[in-house]
Design a binder for these strands. Structure first.
Lengths: 218, 218
DNA sequence: CACCTCCCTAAGCGCTTGCTCACCTCGGGG
DNA sequence: CCCCGAGGTGAGCAAGCGCTTAGGGAGGTG
């Protein structure tokens, strides 16, 4: 329920149709109650199927969680890598990374909650695979921060610590964001992009805003 | 297991002794596996008792979670209120609040994880009571930020949003902090106090550090 | 029409869960 | 000495869990 029907776009490459309906149902249920409190009967029911139908498309309930976690992590990683490689100044790239990453966590906060907070329920092998993706996520942001420090645009005494803090701040959006609240995903993304720049010690904002044609100056 | 035996100090006013052992066992178990994945047999086993003994001291498993959540939230709220009322400059008070709040989340990250991430498993009445405590928590920090903006020490375009972000950053420490990692709770507290000041637009740090006797100047 | 395949369901198996209950143990007062 | 209440146990109940299995119906092919 709610206005999150567009979410099915995220799962476009999950086929056949019944398997996709099950994923969407599972995301809703896991996000609401948590993995362990969700029953396979509940998932199947939300997808309009009998409990047994789940096992035609997925071997276990854990595999369903793994599919969600895997797709979600790859999506999030893509967002950050695109920003990292977008070729502006470090400030532009960090701003873009945080804005998009936060917007995704707010817009798809049900998916993001499962992705970020239900890792512990994965089996050992699946867990290891997801942890590797998370290290890549961290590396993407750290690269931007390092670039900014090297160019002198940023000033922070602890690059890994500040990177961790920026990512942590973004991830936690999935925990508190409420679709019925007054903030839109775009607003939160904008606010957080600004906060992230402050955190890394970037202070040239006003200066840049005052320049009439930023692109033409060199 | 681990070097967290001192944690029992947190639960000093839970009596009798058996009830306290059960709380400590439950915190460990809930933090490791989550509330729903933890069995009453596991909790009782960790406390060195039979499964039935749990029900002499607590009516249900949920009541055990509620006790933990209640004590933890009151502890966290006290930390922030003490900092709010500590009577220095807004920067000093925000710095102190974040430093202590983060240190608590790192040092007692098992308790903090239960307190911050298992709310959803509480019954309706207990949940409402805890949510009220969380609103007070938010208000304590917001007061400090408002004071700083009013005095001109801080500069931020969105006080409630920035307050939310600072709290969110601190809370998320409980998720990622690892006792076996290389950062100590004190180091994280120090780093985060600095980050929080940057987030609220406070820029007078160096100036203050350069003054030889800060207390004697007026 | 028979036949095969793909999806799906009804029924239910074996097990674990939160929780209960009849009984036990043991230190202290009359 | 008996008795008693507080705090504990072993055994087990009803319900719910993840998952399996036997079989049914729809649609394409000969």
């Amino acid at each position: 329920m709610g206005a999150e029907g567009q979410q099915s776009g995220q799962w476009a490459d999950v086929t056949p149709d019944a398997a996709r309906r099950l994923v969407i149902a599972a995301v809703e249920a896991f996000a609401e109650r948590g993995y362990h409190a969700t029953t396979t009967r509940d998932i199947a029911g939300r997808a309009g199927m009998s409990p047994a139908a789940l096992y035609i498309h997925y071997k276990t309930k854990e595999e369903l969680l793994y599919r969600i976690s895997s797709v979600g992590h790859r999506l999030a990683l893509d967002i950050l890598r695109r920003a990292r490689d977008s070729g502006g100044s470090p400030a532009d790239r960090l701003s873009e990374a945080v804005r998009c990453f936060v917007r995704w966590h707010a817009e798809h906060h049900t998916t993001a909650r499962v992705v970020q907070y239900e890792l512990g329920a994965l089996g050992e092998e699946h867990y290891a695979e997801i942890v590797a993706l998370r290290r890549d996520t961290d590396a993407a942001v750290r690269t931007i921060v390092e670039d900014g420090v090297a160019s002198g645009d940023f000033g922070t005494p602890d690059v890994p610590g500040t990177t961790l803090a920026v990512l942590s701040l973004c991830i936690d959006v999935a925990r508190w964001f409420n679709a019925e609240g007054k903030r839109t995903p775009d607003e939160v993304g904008e606010l957080y992009a600004d906060l992230a720049l402050r955190m890394v010690g970037y202070a040239k904002k006003q200066e840049e805003a005052a320049r009439p044609f930023p692109g033409l100056i060199h």
